[in-house]
Simulated scan of single mutants.
Amino acid sequence: MSKPFDMELFLAGMLTGSHATRQRHLRQAIFIQTEIAKRWELKTPWAWRRKHVAWFLEQCLGRRSKATRYYYLLTVRLLIRRLEKSWDFQSTLKT
């Protein structure tokens, strides 16, 4: 039996700012992880590819407000930095 993935531990060194900001990033990162896990059965961010995150931003957040998409994009940037990837999703805000 394996332990569930701990997103808080995964992002521990990346989270800065006020308590509310850290909690928002953590809550959003867990939501991103949950949605990707439901769709592709990928339990950890280490298994994600760019297409999985792009799918989340386009499909799960497509009907949300521009402000909401922006805040999720900030969380995605933290995840990308933690994964040490060079993915760019700036174009997803242009809609």
Rank of each mutant, 00 (worst) to 15 (best):
P45V: 09
V53K: 02
F31Q: 15
L15K: 02
L73A: 06
L78C: 15
K51S: 13
T44I: 03
Q23F: 09
Q90V: 07
P45N: 12
A12T: 10
S86L: 06
R50M: 03
L9M: 04
A20E: 10
R39W: 03
L15F: 01
M14E: 14
A67F: 06
D6H: 07
P45K: 04
W46C: 06
K85D: 03
G13C: 03
V76K: 08
R77M: 00
K3M: 14
F5A: 00
L42P: 04
G17V: 03
T16P: 00
L61W: 00
K85S: 01
D6C: 09
H19I: 07
W87E: 11
A12N: 14
T92W: 14
K3D: 10
A12D: 12
I32H: 01
T21G: 06
L26W: 09
H19W: 05
A20V: 05
Y71S: 15
Y71K: 13
E8K: 14
T68H: 04
S91L: 10
T75V: 10
P45W: 11
H52R: 02
E41C: 13
Q23C: 14
S91T: 13
W40N: 11
S86Y: 05
R82H: 00
L42M: 12
L57Q: 08
T34V: 02
T34P: 00
E41P: 00
M7K: 09
D88K: 07
Q33A: 02
K85A: 09
H52T: 01
R50G: 01
R50D: 02
Q33N: 04
G13W: 12
F5Q: 00
L79F: 07
G17E: 07
K85R: 15
T16E: 08
L79H: 09
R63H: 08
A54E: 08
L78P: 07
E58C: 05
K43E: 12
H19A: 14
I30E: 15
A20F: 04
T92R: 14
T34N: 07
I32Q: 03
C60S: 07
A20H: 12
T68L: 05
F89C: 11
T21W: 05
L11T: 10
V53H: 01
T16C: 04
R39H: 11
